[in-house]
Design a protein around this nucleic acid. Structure first.
Lengths: 380, 380
DNA sequence: CTGTTAGCGCTTTCAA
DNA sequence: TTGAAAGCGCTAACAG
């Protein structure tokens, strides 16, 4: 049915001009309520859907946003930690962000163009295509990493771009991520509440690690504990560096009784090292991570960590991007983030979502009152 | 640079009409060689890229294909098998297929629209959007499962559709998958060569399982071994059914010395059951699976299995889809699969890619000559 | 608040 | 083999 139904047909059936139908379509305020209702009714009745190609051509902008993602299968370097195979970090993060993105976009009129970065060199190639085809009116970038020179170029060309969980912040591009500093603060504060005073920290890379480090210091300072630089090791977010960092800490004359690792992967490494040193977790050493990747609930003992709201990050990023897209359009309608468009290029937009402390076994919180069984892992 | 460059500009610079430029753009044969060269040169020099929106509107078809994928995070039901946490099957399959798809599309002029099926009911909603917006000129569907009624509707409406690894075959829609029967045949033949004569089989669901079952029978017949129906158990592709099927087999008065499971997940289940029965693998019972998901190289003992070429499936599916798209267009150019368009709606198109036997530890092939170490798993 | 009027940049007959 | 001309379906001034 309804082989092809144009705006002309709707106009005729509703007894108005095409421009009026167009106004209704674009939700313009300057339409008589009764007229609008009538038009909407006809559209609904006929099952009218505007032709996107025509809309794009005439309007100069599309109802399509792009999402650039790195390939999940590149590289696939699993590590086996404490009996569990851990896929690369992005396997655990990206699908969840993507679900937030797709579900949110699904609720709008927009469609999603997929730009998969399968190889490092794809980056600039994708940007070239985006610019050339002019198919999308905004771009979402998941986990861009350090290679965002091309993104900046895109952004400066006027394409709205939103970074999700970028690792560096020295860019003007709008950004959605987690409140790293406060999350870290909560984690360390929790360890302090459990009675720890010598708390080691294994740092990661990039800006977010600096934030997490600051959160660590915040908690120490609040408790009046002097920061001891010996207790801070530099890692690189990989499991191995967690092992090494923990080894350095356990080798100290006065080793820490708790370790806060800047991500879960390094926390797993620290767990492994603790085992080598015959330290029980959490009795002899408490361990806390950051991220709450799916596997953290299943290691043994299960890992206390700070949850990053990946789904919500995708969700918020879409909303932010759409607001930027729509406010940069001629007939700009009010948007979720109603920043005056004058501000948008002036100040950096950063959305920091709240993180959440997930208390599990590895911090020893349950030791004092009731010892919870490690049943979480006995799934098979 | 080159803020906006239209076909008009190229025509003027090359001293020809717009229609000639259009002909060159669309690779029409009826253009003078010299003229074509000149036009191409100007386009190249100016860095001209056609406006997709205009192309779509005028041509009635786009250079965009869609890919419908089920969400990776829905549902996330990990199982822990032999010390390794196994994410849901699709986590291991879809990313690889998707890599094949995106890399192949990346080499063409086409872009990829992402339709994520986050919830079962999304299926028909997505089809509605596809039909309504007319944005894509073909659809790739990954692992559609049984819910392909909507797909058939789409297909019958004239949208080219290609199914990747669909589980049922009772549809007219073009399909790309694996040569299940021959793969199974190779697996069982291999067990027979190792001296096994009582070989159990745990079936899965859907058409592909029937194929694999036929391959199992083929190998038995070839070796002159009478099929024993007691040795065939029905499973459902999940780990638990592998456990149960194996338990039924081991409980027989005359149990099998080898088991061919219709997928790797059920093979893992069979391994677990063998352990419960104090049967060593492969000394007491050989186990072979089907799929070669990434984890199969890492279980202990590593699993001998039949590799499905997921990357290639994505690759071939794109090529098939594009050939269908382009041959259904007015100015149909020669395509990879140059099926006369008359045939395309008449006969079912099925592309069966070759599977490959991956011999690892669980079948015992190495027992006779040299005992390979189980070092594959000592990654940590 | 509403209608009229030009296009958006490309494809595609139809003639030449 | 090429060019002229008429749209594809929608948006966006500009008048009214």
């Amino acid at each position: 049915m309804t082989e092809k139904l144009t705006i002309q047909d709707i106009a005729r059936l509703a007894g108005v001009s095409v421009s009026t139908v167009s106004r209704v379509l674009n939700n313009r305020p300057d339409v008589d309520a009764a007229t609008r209702k009538r038009v909407l009714h006809v559209m609904d009745e006929q099952g009218y859907v505007p032709n996107q190609a025509a809309t794009n051509l005439a309007g100069g902008r599309s109802k399509i946003i792009g999402v650039a993602v790195t390939s999940l299968t590149w590289p696939f370097i699993p590590e086996i930690i404490r009996g569990i195979m851990i896929p690369t970090l992005r396997w655990q993060i990206i699908p969840e962000i993507l679900r937030g993105v797709t579900e949110t976009v699904g609720k709008t009129q927009y469609e999603l163009m997929l730009y998969s970065i399968n190889q490092p060199r794809d980056h600039s190639e994708v940007m070239r295509r985006i610019l050339a085809t002019k198919l999308i009116s905004g771009l979402l970038v998941i986990l861009p990493g350090p290679a965002n020179k091309d993104l900046l170029k895109l952004y400066e060309r006027g394409v709205p771009v939103v970074l999700i969980d970028d690792q560096s912040r020295h860019t003007q591009i709008p950004w959605v991520g987690t409140d790293n500093r406060h999350g870290a603060y909560m984690a360390v504060q929790h360890l302090i509440k459990l009675g720890h005073t010598r708390i080691g920290h294994i740092r990661g890379l990039y800006e977010c690690s600096q934030e997490r480090y600051l959160g660590y210091l915040d908690a120490l300072e609040e408790a009046g504990i002097a920061a001891d630089l010996q207790l801070v090791q530099q890692g690189d977010f990989e499991v191995a560096s967690g092992r090494e960092g923990a080894a350095a800490l356990f080798g100290l004359a006065n080793p820490p009784t708790a370790i806060f690792a800047a991500n879960d992967l390094m926390a797993y490494g620290a767990m492994t090292t603790a085992e080598h040193y015959n330290l029980r977790i959490p009795e002899d050493v408490a361990i806390v991570g950051f991220d709450d990747i799916p596997f953290s609930a299943h290691v043994n003992p299960s890992l206390t960590t700070v949850r990053q709201p990946f789904y919500e990050m995708g969700e918020q990023a879409v909303q932010l991007l759409l607001s930027l897209v729509e406010s940069s359009s001629p007939g700009a309608r009010k948007s979720v983030f109603s920043l005056p468009s004058s501000q948008q290029r002036q100040k950096t937009i950063r959305v920091e979502l709240a993180s959440e402390l997930k208390v599990r076994e590895s911090c020893g919180a349950y030791l004092s009152d009731h010892l919870s069984s490690t049943a979480e892992i006995s799934g098979s």
